[in-house]
Amino acid sequence: MEVHDRTSSVLKDHFDRNRTNLSRSELVVAEHLVSMPIDVLIFRSAEEIAAETGTSDATVIRAARRLGFSGLPELKRICSRVMAQTLPTSERLEHRFRATGENLTNVAKQMFEAAREVVTATEEQFDENEVSHAVSILEQADTVWCLGIGTSEAEAIHCSVALSRVGLRTRCSGASGFTLANELLDLRRDDVVVMFHALRDADELKLVVRQISEIGCKVILICGVQLKATYEGMVSALITCTSTPSKLASWSLGALVMADILSYGVAVRNQKQAIDSKARLAKLRAAISTR
Rank of each mutant, 00 (worst) to 15 (best):
E2A: 05
E2Q: 07
R6H: 05
T7C: 02
S8C: 11
S8Q: 07
R17W: 06
R19D: 10
L22H: 04
S23D: 11
S23M: 07
R24N: 02
L27V: 04
V29C: 04
V29H: 04
A30S: 10
A30H: 04
E31S: 07
L33Q: 14
S35P: 03
S45V: 03
I49Q: 09
I49W: 06
I49K: 11
A50T: 09
T53I: 13
T53G: 11
T53L: 14
G54W: 06
D57N: 15
A64L: 14
A64K: 15
R66T: 14
L67V: 10
L67H: 10
S70F: 10
K76R: 10
R77Q: 08
I78C: 04
C79L: 11
C79H: 06
A84C: 10
L87C: 11
P88F: 14
S90I: 06
L93M: 15
N106T: 05
Q110C: 00
A115W: 09
E117M: 12
V119N: 05
T120N: 12
A121N: 08
T122M: 02
E123W: 13
E123V: 12
Q125S: 04
E130P: 00
E130S: 08
V131H: 13
V135Y: 11
V135F: 07
S136R: 15
E139R: 12
A141Q: 07
A141G: 09
D142I: 04
V144Y: 01
L147K: 05
I149N: 06
A156L: 01
C159H: 09
S160P: 13
S160C: 01
V161Y: 15
S164P: 11
S164H: 10
R165F: 01
V166H: 12
L168G: 00
R169Q: 06
R171T: 03
T179D: 03
L180C: 03
N182Y: 00
E183W: 00
L184H: 09
L187F: 04
L187C: 02
D191C: 01
D191Q: 13
V194H: 09
M195V: 13
H197C: 04
L207G: 03
V208K: 10
Q211I: 01
I212E: 00
S213Y: 05
E214G: 00
E214Y: 01
C217I: 08
V225A: 14
Q226R: 06
L227T: 06
L227K: 05
K228G: 03
T230W: 02
G233A: 07
V235H: 14
V235L: 06
L238Q: 13
L238G: 12
I239G: 08
I239C: 00
T240V: 07
T242M: 10
K247S: 05
L248P: 08
G254D: 06
G254R: 14
L262T: 10
L262R: 08
S263W: 01
Y264G: 01
A267C: 10
A274E: 13
D276N: 12
A279F: 05
L281E: 15
A282S: 15
K283H: 07
A286L: 13
I288E: 15
I288R: 15
S289A: 09
S289I: 09
T290D: 15
